[in-house]
Design a protein around this nucleic acid. Structure first.
Lengths: 170, 170
DNA sequence: GTAAACATGTAACAGGTTACATGATTGT
DNA sequence: ACAATCATGTAACCTGTTACATGTTTAC
């Protein structure tokens, strides 16, 4: 259950409300770990119940500002340093490729060409994002930049692969 | 819901029992779309209920051999050609990278070094697999080879990225 | 005879999505 | 006054995981 750790991670930067966190999920975390409003509020209530976070302040409109507790920070560190990421990565794209032989070569090539195009677009979007941010030397910048670099390399790899794959289909 | 389509895809090659399909999921599909025994049997019953597959034969030990129907093939083609893969890809690894600033540079580097190592190992395993199979010219081979090539490129990319990232952390 | 492999099914639970429901504050 | 934004909560439903439960056939 990584949503829990995503929330702890965001709160380790500074206290925030459910609404603030939702906005962070919609922007910076959207491509890494999407989460819905419903899920975020439910999980925050649970985390507060187990003492990993607390309601540090209350504001207008029922706003509750959550802050990380010592236990919460410990849990976050533990997750980062001691547990191995063991994600069984499901790939919708690769599953389709696996069965592309069901289609005629024409439609199969279209699928791969589209994939190359959308990978290129994603790459360009990330490139624009990288250029629009001014990266300083703090931790958020360093690791944010590293995560973005992953995205750039991933989409470049996928584009080249899709182009190569389209050529294999005759 | 792609499990449904994975099952239709496998059955498009030839009729099979739940048990046969389970074995295919444990081997060829393990890295693309993992599924449990429980899930497979439940989904097969549902697919038979909606007429996308039928029980074509019954064998010893209660074995039920399922075959794709015309409706099932149509549904499979439709999924491949008409629907866009829109998978919101969750990455446990990238989520951790995002919050790596919570750790000291030492443990953070260890995390990235470990990632480079495990990517290298995955790459080698796939390379061995590619070399052990004799690829002929049928559809399964062509698209199976293309899917494997994706894995090779993916792990190579991730290894290089993790090595680069480790260097950024001083 | 007995272990391994074949073969299926179901129940409980955890995580994620969609939709509904409500209300307060701010800016124009 | 009205719309946009801030702000939270819950219910229904779907997908996926773990564990339990059962029985047959084959090979040694």
């Amino acid at each position: 259950m990584s949503l829990r750790h995503a929330l702890l991670g965001l709160l380790s930067e500074h206290p925030a409300s459910g609404y603030d966190l939702l906005k962070r999920f919609e922007t910076s975390l959207a491509n890494v770990w999407p989460a819905t409003q419903s899920q975020i509020y439910t999980e925050l209530t649970r985390l507060a119940g187990t003492g990993l976070i607390t309601v540090a302040a209350e504001g207008p409109r029922g706003r509750k500002e959550y802050a990380l507790t010592d236990d919460g920070l410990e849990e976050l560190r533990c997750w980062l340093a001691e547990s191995r990421p063991q994600r069984t990565t499901r790939s919708d794209v690769l599953l389709r490729v696996f069965f592309l032989g069901v289609l005629e070569p024409g439609p199969a090539r279209i699928f791969l060409d589209d994939l190359a195009t959308s990978s290129y677009q994603s790459h360009e979007e990330l490139r624009d994002l990288v250029e629009s941010v001014d990266w300083d030397d703090d931790n958020l910048s360093v690791y944010g930049r590293i995560a973005l670099e992953y995205g750039l390399r991933f989409h470049a790899m996928r584009r080249e692969w899709a182009q190569w794959a389209a050529e294999q289909v005759k």
